[in-house]
Write a protein that binds this DNA or RNA. Structure first.
Length: 243
DNA sequence: AACTCGGGGAG
DNA sequence: CTCCCAGAGTT
């Protein structure tokens, strides 16, 4: 009996490497200088990620600075009244995030708590307000672990580049995009930090939901959607020439 | 799997 | 005007 064939890789390794190398080089040159990219403090990273949930970067910047001024450490949050934390959140929306942060702070700093924000995505995931994305983000951005993360930006970018037939809005397809994200994480934690930031930055600046700026895209050579666009344009031109 | 939570900006 | 945004929790 023939042995079953080994499972095909989720993404061709050579293609993943070419994609990642181009993407990271682009980020080093064009990535925005954002405050939470200048620190590895897990508490600071956590605050930024909670604020950034469903909230655009430009509006978070000021809240982030003001919040950390008022609550310099996780312990300051834990020792504050819940209302004080919600007050610092006023205007940002999604106030469950503020309540979750307070609950998280008390749990982590409790006598039987870990005392510090954990580096492992699985442990992070167990904390209030921390889902799959935020767990990966804190693990990668604060601890430089080789953790994958998928937010709406990353889901869209990976879908367009590697899996145009998937629909990121479907939970079923979203788990497959997580598989892809995990498959393309680079070898070192440092490079993983850059690549994860770069995936989100590309989705925020170039490969946006409404507009695909392929002329500015560093990875169009590895992009399935771009290839389809070019092929379609060629057909259009050929038809025109035939007349 | 569908709904809810907010407020602001882009197209 | 509609859709989207560094999502997560609840039903």
């Amino acid at each position: 009996m023939p042995r079953p064939a080994p499972p095909l890789p989720v993404v061709d390794p050579a293609r993943a490497r070419a994609f990642g190398t181009r993407l990271r080089a682009w980020f080093r040159r064009h990535g925005r200088d954002l405050p939470w990219r200048r620190t590895r403090d897990p508490y600071h990273i956590l605050v930024s990620e909670l604020m950034l949930q469903q909230t655009q970067v430009v509006r978070v910047v000021d809240y982030y600075a003001r919040f950390l001024e008022r609550f310099p450490t996780l312990r300051h949050v834990a020792e504050a009244e819940p209302e004080a934390v919600t007050d610092a959140w006023a205007g940002l929306g999604y106030y469950a995030r503020a309540r979750n942060l307070h609950a998280l702070a008390r749990r982590v700093t409790a006598a039987d708590g870990p005392g510090v924000i954990p580096p492992d995505p699985e442990a992070l995931r167990a904390l209030p307000g921390v889902g799959a994305y935020t767990a990966g983000a804190v693990s990668s951005f604060a601890y430089e672990r080789r953790s994958a993360l998928v937010d709406t930006n990353v889901a869209r970018v990976l879908q367009r580049v590697f899996a145009p037939s998937l629909d990121p809005k479907r939970p079923r397809d979203l788990t497959r995009l997580w598989r892809i994200a995990e498959a393309i994480v680079p070898r070192t934690g440092r490079a993983a930090w850059v690549q994860n930031q770069a995936l989100m930055e590309l989705g925020a600046l170039v490969c946006t939901a409404r507009v695909m700026r392929c002329d500015q895209c560093p990875v169009r050579a590895s992009c399935a959607t771009y290839a389809a666009t070019v092929a379609a344009a060629r057909t259009t031109v050929a038809k025109r020439v035939r007349r």
